[in-house]
Amino acid sequence: MVEVKNLSFSYRKGTRVIDSVSVKIEKGEFVTILGHNGSGKSTLAKLLVGLLKADSGEIYLDGRILNEDTVDELRGKIGIVFQNPDNQFVGVTVRDDIAFGLENRCYPREEMLRLIDEYSRLVNMEKFLEYNPENLSGGEKQRVAIAGILAYNPDIIIFDEATSMLDPKGVREVNEVMSQLRGKKTIIQITHNLNEAIASDRVLVMKDGKIILNDVPEKVFREKETLKASRLDILDCMKLIEMIEATQGLKNKKELEEFLWELTFRK
């Protein structure tokens, strides 16, 4: 469980990037964070994993407060895939990189080798184990970063635009993995892709450092005006529903609308 109480943070004096944020995310929940560029999503994520220290307010992970004394210990509980995969890499080979997350877990050597094999295969990167992550393509980097976090296996995982450069098939594969983790891990996904929000249990919308919407996707996407004012949008299907609603003399009008609604939100 993640609990944030009245959290505030600024990089520079006078500009609050996180502004009195309070939110609770239950164990096993799958939550999506949406928000305009610079709204504070990545900053909130870095506060949650203890990379930044809040000016005021508290963060609790599974009931334990996150502070200087507990941060090292709590790091094993929560992990993040950074927005820029280059910030993820520590090793000179893909193998080292996936191994890095495992080392702190003190696995026997055979188990480590097995896990590296398993997770590199899961993201189709088993042929790249001896490559330098620096020389990979954008999507390959993201695949390796995802393998790393899955191998690290924390209870709470934050994906900060972690699939933004994957091809459509790759996105489907990662979504498949995420849905297998559903209920077992707490997942916080940051994205600009509105369609990716639909699959989640709950959507948080950030604007200028504040959480302005916090509800199930079906409800959040009804807030058209609020979304537009936050540089977001509604879904294509919903735009069509609106257009159909405003049209006279259509056959099957009700069924059409219902079908499109179903098509959007069926999980």
């Binding site: 305009h36 927005q83 954008g138 933004s164 450069m165 600009h192 540089r231 977001l232």
Partner: peptide, 12 residues
Amino acid sequence: DEPTVGLDPFTK
């Protein structure tokens, strides 16, 4: 090269 990655829907 992938110019819309990371942009919010409005900016995109």
